[in-house]
Nucleic acid binder design. Structure first.
Lengths: 201, 201
DNA sequence: TCCTTCGTGAGAGTTGACTCTCATGAGATT
DNA sequence: AATCTCATGAGAGTCAACTCTCACGAAGGA
């Protein structure tokens, strides 16, 4: 029942786990339906076993998704030389939202699940926070030092805007097409960052 | 099979529909589990009948929820005399989010469903857009006339922030408690409105 | 090599979201 | 009152998310 723990048969478990995540990643990539039965089938594993390694679907998707994203520093390499937080945030926002768009199906499934059962949010989507933190590095010593509360508020502002939830709000409820939605979100993120920067100008 | 249409037996249908919505509203109010079987049971109606009147759970919840909210003008009565869009938006945001908080369970269920099946979004949550539009009335003649695009952008900015999705992001992912989350969202909404207002100053 | 351990598969079971069919019986029509 | 109509209920069926049990069989140690 337990599995996981690191006693014996380590390799076997490692292989099984990897196979499951890989299968999930494949399904996510092909845009197919990302369900537990489908993943288990693709991983040549029984559904029961899949549940032995991951408490629920969102956890699995979350892990599979995490492995697809590059680390923040790498993702933001194009703006690595820029010290302008507005430019960096705009880039990070666009990067995140385009990535989400390419994996809409699974991201939607994951978000829906975490919304109905917030208590299961263990592996938070570090991508969002990682990107935001990294994009704001230039402000760490200025705004971050001079006005810690304002800095924290800015991060929260951006956590709301630089997100899948925001993207889906814009496309599903506001009726924007994907590109318009991304443009709009990037604008919003930029506006918020500008406002925060202005505070220390 | 059809029901609904306005031919005969109108009263009967009216009564049935009302009973279903009322039952849903009751369940929402008590914070109980808002599922189709539960609502049907409470409405003394078979589940099949419930589905004859509403294509799916979210539609039902959406309608039940809509009936609970007052019209925008009434909700914003406390700031009716204010011409300050920032103050009005802040009030609208706090009003909306507190209302959502009080009905978390059902709102979460609804949002989750509309995220996984965006194509079923028929009855959009007019509350959000109604409140935003009404809060921004003072800008209609100034910003709205002088910079229509900027005005539209502001509305989109606020649609993302003055929302259940934003609230849940702050509580579930950022780990804020409800009051902190609302305070944060109100701040964000105010910042965005201020930025837009500054453009015409 | 024997034997214990334990990862795994098979399968049954539960719940909720839906879908579909069929029989019933109350309402409307004449 | 006789009849036609149609809203409704009952129930079976599908699918996914899980949960649980039980038996198999290979990995690993003695």
């Amino acid at each position: 029942m337990t599995a996981q723990a690191g006693t014996g048969r380590t390799n076997q478990k490692q292989r099984t786990r990897t196979a499951i995540v890989a299968a999930a990643r494949d399904l996510i990539g092909t845009g197919a339906e990302v369900t537990m039965p489908a993943i288990a089938r693709a991983a040549l594993v029984s559904e029961a076993t899949a549940y032995r390694y991951f408490p629920d679907l969102p956890s699995l998707i979350s892990e599979a998704l995490a492995g697809v994203w590059p680390p923040p520093a790498e993702a933001l390499a194009p703006v690595a030389d820029s010290a302008d937080p507005v430019e960096r945030v705009a880039f990070a926002c666009e990067f995140l939202l385009r990535g989400i768009l390419a994996r809409q199906g699974s991201v939607r499934a994951m978000i829906a699940a975490t919304i109905t059962r917030p208590e299961t949010v263990t592996t938070r989507p570090g991508i969002r926070f990682g990107l935001i933190d990294h994009a704001l590095l230039p402000l760490e010593d200025t705004l971050g030092a001079r006005d810690p509360d304002g800095f924290a508020q800015l991060k929260r502002d951006l956590a709301v805007v630089v997100s899948a939830e925001a993207l889906f709000t814009l496309t599903d409820l506001c009726g924007l097409d994907p590109d318009e939605a991304i443009t709009s979100a990037v604008r919003t993120a930029a506006t918020l960052t500008e406002a925060a920067v202005r505070a220390i100008a």
